[in-house]
Design a protein around this nucleic acid. Sequence first.
DNA 1: ACTTTTATTTCGCCG
DNA 2: CGGCGAAGTAAAAGT
Lengths: 240, 240
Amino acid sequence: MPAVEEARKALAKGEVIVMAGPCEVVYEGRGASRLGEGERLVIIKRDRSILVHRPTGHEPVNWQPSGSAIEFKKEEGLTVVTATNGDEVLRIRFTKEPSLTLFKLSDEALFEMYASEEEMKMALLAEPSLIEEGFTPMEDERYVREAGRVDVLGVDREGRLVAVELKRRTATRDDVKQLMNYLDVLEREFGKRPRGILAAPSATKTARAEMAGSKIEFKCLTPKKCMQVIRKKKGLDAYL
Amino acid sequence: MPAVEEARKALAKGEVIVMAGPCEVVYEGRGASRLGEGERLVIIKRDRSILVHRPTGHEPVNWQPSGSAIEFKKEEGLTVVTATNGDEVLRIRFTKEPSLTLFKLSDEALFEMYASEEEMKMALLAEPSLIEEGFTPMEDERYVREAGRVDVLGVDREGRLVAVELKRRTATRDDVKQLMNYLDVLEREFGKRPRGILAAPSATKTARAEMAGSKIEFKCLTPKKCMQVIRKKKGLDAYL
DNA sequence: ACTTTTATTTCGCCG
DNA sequence: CGGCGAAGTAAAAGT
């Protein structure tokens, strides 16, 4: 079966196609690019995204996102692949017949990015100075009647009660309000309003405004930093 | 030959390796990620960059840039690939023996991004209003003694001489200075200082400051826009 | 659906 | 070499 036919069928069957061979590549769309003859890998995925990879560099030299219209043609005896997405066109012209490798891949797994909020808390408990010098955690996940759970409850160097709310991504105004809720309940319980610290990699503008108006403090804490602490801790544990 | 051995040799020979099979992927570095079992393509290039591609999505789910330390191992009978780059580690554990496809690719071609400056000039000559309404090009690449060449020399709607300098990328202060040079020479030649227009997709802050201080005008002109004009022109030519 | 923000951003130029 | 800005940014989250 000719390579062009085989590729069309494979794409229809949802297989991933890898073509390898000498080709010229032209892209025109938001920008424009030209790539002279050379040997590359062309990868076409089942969602009709396409990648052109040179033998070096971890980024594709050209590509088209998923949902592109992929066409396999023979033009003057040469195999041509075009991928059209709106007014953007990628055209790959193989100057010699490319090799064709097909892969039937099944992949339903969940991709989890970043350290989890749980891991961030572990890091914080292992290294309380991530919040501030002299911070001492007292309770992990303290249950606050009606309001829910405070991530970490502790005291600062001057003995003041501190409620810490952790977020693994940009903190929102809702997160600030939730922490305010905890502070309200804790104030009634202890007779004195605790400090409130929202620890997150960043905060939205509205969240910052809310914090400014309610005396809640912000502490920048990234999952990355937490991962470093956890790994350091692990390394230490392994050493001891 | 075992796949692990074969992969090592291929990498040493500068070949591009494509491994396909069910695997689990763990990344820890600037961030951290976990990807459960599923079938993926793993591409290892000769510059020791590595990509993990799921069957959909045009971006790799995990990767490591060029210059990573790539290791192929057998652990408890399973093939494991690790790529280490500084304190970043990518680990791919194949739960079944992966297929191994090797590609010997030679690619020395130049990659040209954007429309060329030449193409931008063609567009401008074909559609002078890209500069401003009433602009009329008079000379293409006018040689200015000692100073070099002005991209386009023309007159505006009020008959004033205009020197246009084209850049396909963000204009720098040096570009402004070059245009000023042309203006100086043209002023001596014509007895009157021409208008100077720098046409580029954007300008650096320093370039903008230099323009403000030297009465040089900026006209935003993108390669994309020029490509559109060229294509429209081509379409018209084909029609006539 | 549109806008804003993030990213293991990457990449290039500027200072 | 560090910092800043753009990218055919892409992709996710907020509005």
